[in-house]
Measured scan of single mutants.
Amino acid sequence: SLEEAIRRAEEALRKGQTFEYAGIRVTTQEALEKFRKWAEKQK
């Protein structure tokens, strides 16, 4: 689910890792916010 993907992205960010979902790379807090906004639109 998208909620699960967001949780995994947050977890990866805390560990300093890269999270990738549907071709979207989350490597920074800013990218995480963009990913969250994108995920909201997918619902």
Rank of each mutant, 00 (worst) to 15 (best):
L2H: 05
L2A: 05
L2Q: 03
L2D: 01
L2E: 02
E3Q: 10
E3M: 11
E3K: 09
E4K: 06
E4V: 08
E4M: 09
E4A: 10
E4N: 10
E4G: 07
E4D: 13
E4L: 09
E4S: 09
E4W: 10
A5H: 06
A5F: 10
A5R: 03
I6T: 04
I6M: 09
R7Q: 12
R7T: 09
R7G: 09
R7S: 11
R7I: 12
R7E: 10
R7W: 11
R8G: 10
R8Q: 14
A9H: 00
A9P: 00
A9N: 00
A9I: 05
A9L: 04
A9F: 04
E10D: 06
E10T: 09
E10M: 07
E11N: 07
E11Q: 08
E11R: 05
E11L: 06
E11G: 04
E11S: 07
A12N: 04
L13M: 07
R14K: 14
R14V: 09
R14H: 09
R14Y: 10
K15W: 10
K15L: 14
K15F: 10
K15R: 13
K15I: 11
K15M: 14
G16I: 01
Q17E: 15
T18N: 10
T18S: 12
T18D: 12
T18C: 04
F19N: 00
F19A: 01
F19M: 03
E20N: 06
E20S: 07
E20W: 08
E20L: 07
E20P: 00
E20H: 06
Y21I: 08
Y21R: 00
Y21F: 12
A22T: 04
A22R: 09
A22K: 11
A22N: 13
G23I: 01
G23L: 02
G23W: 05
G23M: 03
G23T: 04
G23D: 06
I24P: 00
I24L: 09
I24S: 02
I24T: 04
I24W: 15
I24F: 15
I24A: 02
R25P: 08
R25N: 09
R25A: 11
V26Y: 08
V26N: 01
V26E: 00
V26I: 15
T27E: 15
T27V: 08
T27L: 06
T28Q: 03
T28V: 03
Q29M: 14
Q29E: 12
Q29I: 12
Q29L: 14
E30T: 09
E30Q: 10
A31W: 06
A31N: 10
A31P: 00
A31D: 15
L32T: 00
L32H: 01
E33L: 08
E33R: 07
E33K: 07
E33N: 09
K34M: 14
F35T: 00
F35H: 01
F35N: 00
F35Q: 00
F35M: 05
R36K: 15
R36W: 05
K37F: 09
K37I: 13
K37Y: 12
W38F: 04
W38Y: 05
W38S: 01
W38T: 02
W38M: 03
W38P: 01
W38R: 01
A39Q: 03
A39P: 00
A39E: 02
A39K: 02
E40Q: 09
E40M: 08
E40P: 01
K41S: 15
K41N: 14
K41V: 11
Q42I: 13
Q42M: 13
Q42E: 10
Q42S: 07
Q42L: 12
Q42K: 10
Q42C: 08
Q42G: 07
K43T: 13
